[in-house]
């Protein structure tokens, strides 16, 4: 193509989607990278205008998505089962596993009426977007996943939850999910 823009010309009928509009992997790559830049710029501008309020806005957006995405999931009180279901909801783009340090016997830790579980997010489109745009991790965009996870947990377990970021890295991020049983 040598940098030239290739125009798609054809007949369009409402009931037919011309195969040519599907594009190829190069088109998808360009679209993804453009979208990453847009989302990154939006997050950075949001932070500039709203300061810390940006986190709350993005969190709320994520939470709504989390509730929507897990509406049809089976409800459960079992945290480990819920994590398995959430893994399906979040899909490959937010691939995570439960994690524990070697000194700990179980994945879950009970503290009064709260249960904690550490989650290791290995694949994350938010992280990829931040790296494409050169933005630091732990910013407002990370709150999207925070909200998404909390929204999904609330939907599946019908309970209040929160997610804290313990550590961020280029290959994986560790977060602690806390479930408050009295919040039911």
């Amino acid at each position: 193509m040598n940098g030239e823009i290739e125009e798609i010309r054809g007949t369009f009928k409402p009931e037919l989607i011309p195969a040519a509009t599907g594009g190829n992997i190069d088109d998808y790559e360009k679209a993804l990278h453009t979208l990453m830049k847009f989302v990154g710029s939006m997050s950075s501008a949001l932070e500039q205008v709203s300061g810390r309020g940006a986190n709350a806005i993005v969190y709320q957006a994520g939470k709504r998505m989390g509730h929507e995405a897990s509406k049809l999931m089976e409800k459960t009180d079992d945290l480990e089962k819920a994590m398995g279901e959430l893994s399906e909801v979040l899909g490959q783009e937010f691939y995570f596993e439960m994690w524990k340090p070697s000194s700990q016997d179980n994945y879950t830790v009970e503290r009064g009426d709260e249960t904690e579980v550490k989650l290791l997010f290995m694949d994350c489109v938010v992280r990829q977007t931040l790296r494409r745009t050169g933005l630091p991790q732990k910013g407002p965009l990370c709150y999207l996943l925070y909200g998404y996870m909390v929204g999904a947990v609330e939907e599946v377990m019908d309970i209040r939850g929160k997610l804290d970021i313990d550590h961020v890295g280029p290959n994986a991020c560790l977060k602690t999910l806390t479930i408050k049983w009295s919040g039911k």
């Binding site: 790559e29 993804l32 990278h33 990453m36 691939y95 290995m122 694949d123 994350c124 489109v125 992280r127 990829q128 977007t129 790296r131 494409r132 280029p170 290959n171 994986a172």
Partner: peptide, 9 residues
């Protein structure tokens, strides 16, 4: 586990 790096061309 090597995370996906779709942000790289």
């Amino acid at each position: 586990h090597v995370a996906k790096r779709l942000y790289i061309d």
